[in-house]
Amino acid sequence: MAIFELIYQFMNNFSFLILSAVGLAIIFGMMGIINLAHGEFIMLGAYITTLATASGVPLPLAILLAAAGVGVFGLIVDRLIINRLYGRTLDSVVVTWGISMILSQGILIIFGPSLEGSSTPLGSISIAGATYSTYRILLFFIAIVMLGIIYWLFMHTKFGLYSRATMQKHDIANTMGINTNKMYSLTFMLGAALAGLTGGLYAPTMAVSPTFGSAFLMPSFVTVIVGGANPLIGTSLSGGVLGVVNSILDILWGTFYGRLGLLVVAIIVIRLLPLGFSGLVEKKLMRGRGI
C-alpha cells in the first residue's frame, strides 16, 4: 500500500533530518556558531559505536558510549579552540572546517578507508505485502523521545533556564551571575554529544568510513536553515515539513530529487521567512500574548 510506504518513508526521513540536525541546531541557536565539523562529530560517534560493538559491547550501550565520548571530545575542542571564538561566527566556520579536516584525515590514517560494519539489527516487519526495517521505525520513536528530553532539559531544568537567558541576552545573563562561558561550553558539549548519538544510531545502517558524516551534512544544514535559531521548535517543525516534502519526492522521483527538493524548500523558506520557522513561531507567540 502506497500509504504505508509514504508513512514509513516519512518516519525514516523525519528521524534522519531531526537526528542529523539537532546537535548542529543547538550549537547554532545557542552560540551562533556554525559547526562545520558536525558531520565529523557524527562520524566519530559511528566509529566509537562500531568499535565498541566489535569488541563485544551491546549495541544500546555502544550508542550511549558514542554520545558520551563525542560529548567529552566536544568539551575538549571547546576549551582548547572554540571558546576563543564566541561571537565570531565566520571565523568559527573556518576553524571548524579545519577541525573537520583533521578529524576525517586523522581517522583515515588511524583506521584506514573503512571499518568492518555490523548489519542493521532487529530485522524487518511486513505490512500489506511490503517489508519495513524495524530498526528504522524505532529510530523515529527515538527521535521523538529525544525531542521530548531536550524540551524537558531546556524548559524544566536550571541548565535550560540559564542557557535560554544566555541565548537571549548574554551580557545581562552575565551580570546576573550566570557564567555564560560555562553555559557555552556545556552547550557545545551537548551539541557534540547529540552528534555522537546520531552517529552511533546510524552506525549499523551505513558503511562506516571517514566520510560517514558527509551524508548528514546537507540535510542537517537545510534543516537548521529552515528551522531558524530555535533549536527545539524550529528543528521539529522544519524536520516535519522537510520530511513530508522529501518523502513525497523520494517516492515519486527517487532519492536525488528528494535531496534537491530539500534545497528548494530551504531557499523558498528563507526567502519568505529569513528567520526560519522559529521567527514565524516567535512572532505568533508575541501576538498571542498581546505584547
Binding site: T89, V93, M218, I225, F256, L260, A266, I270, R271
Partner: peptide, 23 residues
C-alpha cells in the same frame, strides 16, 4: 533581495554547491 545575509548566505551557497555536485 530576499534579505538573506551573513552566515545564511554561506549556508545556502553550501547547499547549492552540494546539490550541483550530487546532481
Amino acid at each position: 533581495y530576499g534579505g538573506i545575509n551573513d552566515v545564511f548566505v554561506g549556508l545556502i551557497t553550501l547547499c547549492i554547491t552540494v546539490s550541483l555536485e550530487t546532481f
